[in-house]
Each structure stands twice: as C-alpha cells, then as structure tokens.
C-alpha cells in the first residue's frame, strides 16, 4: 500500500510540474503584454514598468518561473479585476460554494446510480434493464445546462417551488463562516432554519449536476454486476435463500464500492466542468463563474493561479479516490472474498 501511495504522490508531483509549465508557457505565449491587458492601454508606461518590477516580470525566465511557484503557494495571487479583492480571499469565498455543490451532486448522483444499478440486477426485468442503460447513456445525450434550464422553468417559473438562483436568501444573513460550506456551518452553529434555507437553494442545482455521476456510476456498476464472477456470487447467494436486501447490502455493495469510488474520483474533473455550467445556469456564486469571468475579462494573473489550483484539485481527488478504492477492494486484501 505504501509503495502504491508513493507512486501516486510522485505522479501528483509530475502533474503539478507539467501543469505549471503549461500555464507559465501559455502566459509567455500571449501576443500582448499581460500587464497592458490587465491595466489597459491608457495607463502610464512608468506604472506598467513599476508593476513589472514588483511582479518580477523583468527577471530571467527561470526567475519568473520560481516567482510563479512562490506566489502560488504563498497565496499572493494579486487583486481580482472583477471584485477588487485579493484573489486568494475570493477563492476562500467561492471555492466552498463549488465544493458544496459538487459534493452534494456526487452524493445524490452516486446514490441514485447505485440504487438503479442494484435494482436492475435484483429485479432483472426488461424495464429495470432499460432504465439502467438509459440512465447510463444520459450523460452523453442530454446537455446538463439544458437540464438545469428546464428545471428552472418547471420548478422556478411555472410551479414557483424553488428559487431562480443564488446560494442564500437575499434578505437573510448567511450562517457564520467557519468552513465556508453553508450546510456544515449551519450544523456547527445549530441553525436549523438556516440549514433548511441553504438546502432549499442547493437542492435544484445539485440535482441537475447529479446527472453526471449518476450516469457514470449506473453505466459502470451495471456492467460490473453483469460480470461472470459477480453474477456467480449473486446466483450462489440466491440459491442459499438470501433475500434481495441482504444480498445487496451484505455482499453486492462491498463488491461494488471500490469501482464506484474510482468512478466518482475520475469523473470529478467532468463534475467540476459541469459545475461551471450549473453555476452559470443557477447564478451560483462558485469558483467556476469566477474563473470564466476572470478569463473573459483578461484578468490573467488571477486566472493562471486558479487554473493551476483547479488542476491540482482534480488530480488530488483522483489520488484520494484511488487510495480509498484500493483500501476498499476485497481482492486486494489477504483473506478477502476472492480466496
């Protein structure tokens, strides 16, 4: 296990190096002066030169690359052109919103995917099989942003059950920030009314985003449960007279847990991409909307660090999911089920 973790950590280091070189090179390949792009053409040349010196952009390429890493890890990411605040401060505000949204979507999508795949295996009728296959292919047929818009029209405009956007009521104070995750902060402070309010705003966007993990988990788990070894396990348990619930919760879930964790980890990147779209549809104040607007407004100094941070986040999640999947996989344990 330690060797496995060591290899994965080395891979993470390689990813960081490659991503930072790619982003640094991209900044150097911009045809225009990034400082002119940031401050505009009407700013005096002296100010541009002073900024160049302050940011270390007058140094050699190696010196600039070093400065890039120092600034990234120290959180000195410059002020955002959009909000006027330090970008690291904005990150603390917007990133938890995206993590909360993606986390709940993963929970909903993973749970729904497992339920559908298990139901289709236990039932085994045509309808359940078609339901599992349709849900598995849904991610490639229906665009997530359209699902969000349709949800808003139905539940927001026509039925008026849910708000049209935002993260919390405009007229109410959000929970006291401890983690930045509203659900966790409400639980920590015991504010049940605010917890209900936060859930009210979170439910629609997270259900929309849940389509990604649901499709991935359903497709993978349905295929896994159809494999001959799992099928043999199911038939032998049935022949022993075990009930459906006992087979699902006592055996099949154990067999399925490792691949489900792997799928959730590897689809986190796609989920994050989906979160960018969901945030746009539901006016969710997350890091995706913040980054898209940073790039559109050519706020490149902030965008470069944000990109690097998000790439690291994606690969860190994949790393942890691999480690958890390895620990959960019964075939990897001595005396496991496969013996």
């Amino acid at each position: 296990m330690l060797g496995f973790i060591g290899r994965k950590v080395a891979y993470l280091g390689f990813v960081y190096l490659l991503a930072s070189v790619a982003i640094f090179a991209a900044m150097k390949l911009i045809p225009e002066d990034p400082l002119v792009a940031r401050y505009g053409k009407h700013v005096p040349l002296e100010k541009i030169e002073a900024e160049r010196e302050r940011l270390g952009l007058d140094r050699s390429l190696g010196g600039q690359f070093w400065e890039f890493h120092i600034r990234f890890w120290s959180g000195d990411w410059e002020n955002s052109l959009r909000t006027g605040r330090p970008a690291a401060e904005d990150l603390r505000k917007y990133l938890p919103a995206t993590i909360e949204l993606s986390g709940l979507a993963m929970l909903f999508g993973g749970g729904a995917g497992i339920a559908v795949a298990m139901y289709s295996r236990v039932r085994g009728n045509e309808f359940s099989k078609k339901a599992a296959m349709s849900l598995g292919g849904m991610g490639l047929i229906v665009p997530i942003f359209w699902i969000g818009i349709v949800m808003l029209v139905i539940f927001g405009v026509w039925l008026e059950w849910f708000p049209m956007g935002g993260r919390f009521g405009m007229l109410e104070a959000p929970p006291k920030a401890v983690t930045g995750l509203y659900l966790v902060d409400c639980l920590l402070s015991g504010s049940w009314g605010k917890l209900a309010e936060a859930l009210y705003y979170l439910l629609l966007p997270s259900c929309c985003l849940a389509v990604y993990p649901m499709a991935g988990v359903t497709a993978m788990l349905y295929a896994r449960l159809k494999e001959p070894e799992v099928d043999a396990l199911y038939v032998s348990l049935r022949s022993k007279g075990y009930g459906s619930l006992r087979i699902v919760f006592g055996h099949l879930l154990r067999v399925a847990s490792a691949p489900v964790v792997t799928v959730l980890g590897t689809t986190f990147g796609g989920l994050l991409g989906g979160a960018f779209l969901t945030e746009t549809v539901f006016s969710w104040p997350g890091i995706g909307r913040y980054m898209v607007s940073s790039i559109i407004e050519r706020d490149l100094f902030v965008a470069q660090y944000l990109l690097l941070m998000l790439i690291l986040l994606i690969f860190c999640v994949a790393f942890f999911s691999d480690v958890v999947a390895k620990a959960l996989d019964p075939r990897g344990k001595e005396g496991g089920d496969e013996r």
Partner: peptide, 24 residues
C-alpha cells in the same frame, strides 16, 4: 504519460486554458 494526464480533465478547463493566449 501525457495522455493519461488528460483522462478526467474537463474540456471546459482546457478551453479556458487556451483562452488565456488565444482569441475568444
């Protein structure tokens, strides 16, 4: 190694990365 890096990498992020130095 380079191709394996791209697995699970969202197209949206790559699109944004390209937008840094290419025209929109």
């Amino acid at each position: 190694a380079v191709v394996s890096l791209g697995v699970g990498f969202p197209v949206v992020l790559l699109g944004l990365l390209l937008m840094v130095f290419m025209e929109r």
